[in-house]
Design a protein around this nucleic acid. Sequence first.
DNA 1: CTCTATTGATCAGCATACTGATCATCAGTA
DNA 2: TACTGATGATCAGTATGCTGATCAATAGAG
Lengths: 156, 156
Amino acid sequence: MAEMQEMPGHLARRFQQIAVAVFLSEVEAAGFDLTPVQYAALAAIAANPAIDQITLAGLIAYDRTTITGVIDRLAQKGLVVRQASARDRRSRELLITDEGRRALDAITPAVEAAQRLMVRGLTKAETNELIRLMQKAIAAGNDLSRAPLREGTAER
Amino acid sequence: MAEMQEMPGHLARRFQQIAVAVFLSEVEAAGFDLTPVQYAALAAIAANPAIDQITLAGLIAYDRTTITGVIDRLAQKGLVVRQASARDRRSRELLITDEGRRALDAITPAVEAAQRLMVRGLTKAETNELIRLMQKAIAAGNDLSRAPLREGTAER
DNA sequence: CTCTATTGATCAGCATACTGATCATCAGTA
DNA sequence: TACTGATGATCAGTATGCTGATCAATAGAG
């Protein structure tokens, strides 16, 4: 374990580093300017209209304090709107705009290309196995981070 | 691929998120205050005395602009010293201090415990396979990030 | 030897992530 | 209904990572 190259933690950092670089590169080549985090938030808002920020954070496993800035930037780009909830005046309902929907549709092929590119060194079977193992490790460690994934989508 | 939970990029982010949380938790429980990034830098400096910052960055795949701040913090904690090089006045030679060596030795068990904890959902065989697959994917994507890993340790 | 291109380090600026705090609001209870 | 605890959102502060720029110093070509 003394070798850094065999430590899961180091490999996790490195793989994530490459994944982000590939994502940004593919998305920019497609003519868009969205980060992985912004894309995931936009996609989740599209699939869950009027979701509040805390629930959204749980869906994509973001820290609640991170989501504020992410939504700020999506709103500033005109891709989502943040409106006060009538039911609970503390919360903001998030909605994707028409422009956001168009951007999401247009960008998705680049995102999928990025997913393939970041595992280009692996066979299809190896890729599936990597996905399975990461899912399993993540499921076991879900509650160890401050921003665990939370199921229970829209029914709040 | 429409499902986020099957995208390598999302899983990479999530696994890294858990890995960092586990690392910080174990290290703090052991009575230390070091981030994963600071630990890797400290260990690399210990193994490569008088290394310069650029070479160090290549060894652990950090961006060169990131390393400046990391070394700042290690130096501020008294764990390393940064001294001008006689050979090349542009570069700074990095050396671990006695205190840094003691901290490194004392913290290593916690770091290794963290490596095991972050894959606690996997069997030993699965862990080895996850490591192998991440290594392979990373090797193929090494040059896709701004901070690739560079071999060629001390002989500059 | 001089000029140019490169290199080591740093900086400003931006985007995640997190810790811990605050504020307004809400829900449930006495 | 008044109070207490919980909750949604935000903020200040810190630490990665990155883009792109700058500056001093070095190396290589001619």
